[in-house]
Design a binder for these strands. Structure first.
Lengths: 293, 293
DNA sequence: TAAAAATACTCCATAGGTATTTTAT
DNA sequence: ATAAAATACCTATGGAGTATTTTTA
């Protein structure tokens, strides 16, 4: 049984005339007769009752006509949505993101993307940068939005923006009097940081920055989320090194830029595989990179 | 797109290895590669990501795999039920019947048939003999069960049995005293008969029988159903010429055989088209004719 | 007699085979 | 070096064409 034969069969069933049906499907009448005969032989019985003047469907033929239409419809649909998948307008997109990108970048890019590609199902996964790299490589996510660019030979990245370090402190803190804050001012301060596993790049970068200035930072407390860290700062437990966009999470603190350093506290980036990216991924990246050139 | 290609594609998707998949579907590896390439070209994109060592499905490939399986399942099902239709175990059977066959023949044959062919949908239509003939010819019914054999060049028939005329009368009727009743005894009796259109054959046959004996019957009343006729007899309105099986419909009357005639009051028969009968019809007839040889 | 399906036959496109090449591990 | 997919090329099956026959209304 072939698709061709199903289409021919449907044509004959609709026309009930081999000559007209042959014209309809664009072949010669004898070829059509042969194909129908072959189909009948395949199925093991007659689909049509032919006299030399009239053609009509047998009971089994009527049954098979419904089936043939179902098959053709199903096949056309399959081709259609697969082509859509190739074009990127249909499919699935799994996006991994770090907490800090969920404040502005993630909702922004998702909103724009959804408007253009409403038929792509988006799944979001909260993943730390290191896990995004792993998930990208074994195909669990299509796109990563990480706090720092991934350094991996199989991955591409695009830095969204670079933010410097800021110091978050309570209103009554003594450093709030100072005009300019440098790294050495933190030597004797209690610091609240993230756990290293939450963002090793950020953590190590901060440690190195201190070490380069000749001291080892006093980490009095760690937490997993920025909101928690700022709450701890607010309680007077210590001060925190944050990046600029985290300023807007909490308004009861004083924020001052850390001067005299060329390091960046935060470089939110899109990350994706170098090869075999899906059309939906490609379309997403096109929008995303256009949004944050 | 061809069924062949779908099957090959499913095999490769399952094995994720062209060599093994080729063996599985029974062709050589290069032929398989070519067919998959052609399918991909048809669809307009890659279904697999190939490195020289590994094969994996693209996102669109995963989508198309589900679709391909649906199509193949649908096609297999179509072939299956069509073959069943050819064998007579699946399909539809529309049976026309006259009232008098619904007392014993119809339920009997249907019961036996349903046991053997539970997947054939049976529709019953109450039709007079003349309408059965018409319905058979334009394909509205597959089988007719009529009170008399149809006389039509396009139809075959099989007489189930032959029943002679009987006279139905109330207990107190004067003819109930008589030992033997002949046609001439009815000359002066009020007769209750069916309307002619309900069974022209029966009606005309009865009229002719009287005319041959030299009188025109006194028809005092007509009715459409045998039950009604017997009720009217019971009321003393008149007597009725019935066939033997109708005796069992009502026990408060006296029934006596009409002697001295070789005519038959009733010849219930199966009727069907001479050609292009469906497999289900053929199977039904086989059972029916075997049941009433 | 004419319309329409089937048959006879011819041709060529292509599915599938074998041999070989390419490439990643 | 090897495994595995792709490429090159060849063969033959069968789909479709033209010409003709058969059949019945």
């Amino acid at each position: 049984m072939e698709f061709r034969q199903l289409k021919y069969f449907i044509a004959v069933a609709e026309e009930l005339h081999f000559g007209r049906a042959a014209k309809k499907v664009g072949i010669a009448q004898p070829a059509l007769s042969q194909q129908i005969q072959q189909l009948e032989q395949d199925l093991g019985g007659k689909l049509f009752v032919r006299t030399k003047r009239t053609v009509s469907l047998t009971d089994a033929g009527k049954l098979f006509l419904n089936q043939a239409r179902l098959i053709i419809t199903q096949a056309d649909y399959a081709v259609d949505i697969t082509r859509q998948a190739f074009s990127g307008v249909f499919g699935e997109l799994v996006i991994g993101f770090v907490e800090s990108t969920s404040w502005d970048i993630l909702p922004h890019v998702i909103e724009i993307y959804r408007k253009r590609f409403p038929n792509v199902k988006i799944s979001l996964q909260h993943l730390h940068t290191i896990n995004q790299i792993e998930a990208l490589q074994n195909g669990n996510i299509h796109i990563g939005i990480s706090g720092f660019p991934a350094n991996n030979p199989n991955l591409n990245f695009h830095i969204i923006r670079k933010e410097s370090y800021w110091v978050a402190m309570p209103k009554e803190h003594r450093l709030s009097e100072k005009q300019n804050i440098f790294i050495n001012d933190l030597k004797t301060e209690d610091l609240i940081t993230t756990n290293r596993e939450v963002g090793a790049f950020y953590y190590d970068s901060m440690i190195k920055m201190c070490m380069d200035s000749g001291f080892s930072p006093q980490i009095c407390q760690t937490a997993n989320e920025m909101q928690t860290i700022l709450s701890l700062v607010s309680c007077g437990i210590g001060i925190a090194l944050i990046h600029e966009s985290a300023k807007y999470l909490r308004s009861d603190l004083i924020y001052k830029e850390l001067l005299g350093t060329n390091r960046h506290a935060y470089q939110p980036s899109f990350v994706w595989k170098k090869d075999n990216i899906s059309p939906a991924t490609k379309c997403f990246l096109e929008i995303a990179l256009n949004l944050y050139p």
